[in-house]
Amino acid sequence: MNYFGKYSVICALCTVAFIGKTGQTYSQEIDYKAYTIFLYNFMKYVEWPANDGDFIIGVAGESPVKKELEQLAKNKKAKSKKIVVISVMNPGDALLCNMVYIPSSKSSELKAISGKVKNRSVLIVAEREGLAKKGADISFVVDDEDALKFDINRSVMDSHNLKAAKILIELGMVVD
């Protein structure tokens, strides 16, 4: 192995050693409270067809955002409706929801969920950037300066019979 190779190995080992030695390390984790506040505002600025019952938010799989949404549900209402948070363990569960949140780790389920709720008034919000172009109504974007933004797809929203307020569309980035 030449010197450059040796240095590379030393470099990699140093990194691994640091990772291994720092059991309680932490860095800037994703702030799901921020995501939740956005979701709450989506509830306020998106118009669903009139219906009775609670406002149900489904979270695909497991995600820390669920805990934050449950905290929200304890303290707030969605246009006077009680907020209920459920887990979406299979695409069919999405049919019970008014809004479905797809965490990054479950992005591959977008196709199945959007297929299941086709023409139904379910707002699909995806954590991963770019999914508003692939079937979600809204997807989050984190820019180079870490600001949280969102893409919005009006065509998908139309197909779900949902109407976004003008201010929401102005603040988002339209991708349709």
Partner: peptide, 26 residues
Amino acid sequence: DTLDYYDMSLEQLIAMKAHGIPSELE
């Protein structure tokens, strides 16, 4: 505090950081 933040206007949200307030090092 949490309740206050939920009531932020939509316009205010654009200052939100995806990873919270960064430390000086970050």
